[in-house]
């Protein structure tokens, strides 16, 4: 091989590298659309009524601390997040901070989203940018004192929020790690399935073990204590992809919605990874109240 040929090859490889980097920098909106489903953005950022426009906000989340409304996240400059930069978006997901530096209430599941990879944040951003802008104003939260003090969230964060991207566990298979990422970072399953203490902080010793959910209802235990007894992998996949149970039962609408918008949209490989991860969790006995 001549020197010039080598150089040409090198330049070619460099060009290819740049091309990939440029594609990355822009974000892949199509991939982002899939991620928006895996992250369940639609549920809170869309009204519940029929024919509601996706992502223009409005859904109420009734918690013991008050009622939170998902805001408009379309690219409208005033009503939505049209003036944001990608860095603003990353800061919101990773650190629970608005562009002006104020805290988000943890009704926005940034304690989960903080685990998202750079590439996923970028692609999700690209997708949100591609949405039609809507001028519908976001509804203010209906939260009483003292929970309405955004500054107080700083202390909550000190206690309960650990920022940082998801790190795969080298001891676990790539599939289980992928499932862990889907479950904990994107899917934010723990926001409902991990019970909270009186301060609204997740009880880490009862990770995904169910109990009282954010809206005061019982939430099932996802650890093998319950799942192993209940269903095999195929049955679990049917449930999470189509809401089908072996006996034709209809799950509660709170989960059915998650199935329609999120777990039912996952690729078969991602769904299998999520199930493999749930199977790998340490078994935690259900609390008596949730047992029944």
């Amino acid at each position: 091989m001549t020197v010039s040929m080598k150089r040409m090859l090198r330049i070619g490889a460099l060009g290819l590298l740049f091309a990939t980097a440029a594609a990355w920098a822009q974000g892949d909106a199509k991939r982002g659309e899939y991620l928006s489903k895996a992250a369940g953005c639609l549920g809170c950022h869309t009204e519940e009524k029929k024919g509601a426009v996706p992502y223009v906000g409005g859904r109420a989340l009734k918690t013991p601390f008050g009622t939170f409304y998902g805001p408009n996240i379309t690219p409208h400059p005033e009503a939505g997040i049209g003036k944001w930069t990608e860095a603003d978006f990353a800061q919101a997901l990773r650190h629970g901070k608005r562009p002006d530096g104020a805290n988000y209430f943890p009704a926005f599941p940034y304690p989960s989203f903080t685990g998202m990879t750079d590439a996923d944040v970028r692609d999700l951003w690209a997708y949100l940018r591609s949405l039609p802008a809507s001028a519908q104003a976001s509804r203010p939260h209906d939260v009483g004192f003292p929970y309405n003090v955004r500054f107080a969230v700083t202390f909550w964060k000190m206690l309960y929020f650990t920022p940082g991207a998801f790190t795969p566990d080298a001891k676990l298979s790539p599939e289980v790690n992928r499932g862990a990422y889907l479950t904990t970072a994107l899917g934010h399953c723990g926001e409902c399935h991990t019970p909270r203490n009186a301060m609204g902080g997740p009880r880490k010793d009862r990770f995904l073990a169910g109990g009282k959910g954010p809206e005061g209802k019982d939430i099932p235990n996802l650890t093998p204590t319950r799942l192993k007894k209940k269903w095999d992998d195929k049955e679990l996949a049917d449930f999470l992809s189509a809401g089908l149970t072996p006996d034709g039962d209809v799950p509660a609408e709170a989960m059915s919605e998650v199935i329609r918008n999120t777990t039912g949209m996952l690729t078969p490989a991602d769904l299998a990874a999520m199930i493999a991860y749930l199977r790998s969790l340490p078994s935690i006995e259900s609390e008596p109240a949730a047992k029944k």
């Binding site: 049917d238 992809s241 189509a242 809401g243 089908l244 149970t245 006996d247 034709g248 039962d249 209809v250 039912g264």
Partner: peptide
């Protein structure tokens, strides 16, 4: 309720394409 599950299950499966 159990019997409703028996007759609704397949319909839910059809609606979702399974």
């Amino acid at each position: 309720m159990t019997l409703q599950g028996k007759y609704f299950g397949p319909l839910a499966g059809m609606a979702s394409g399974k």
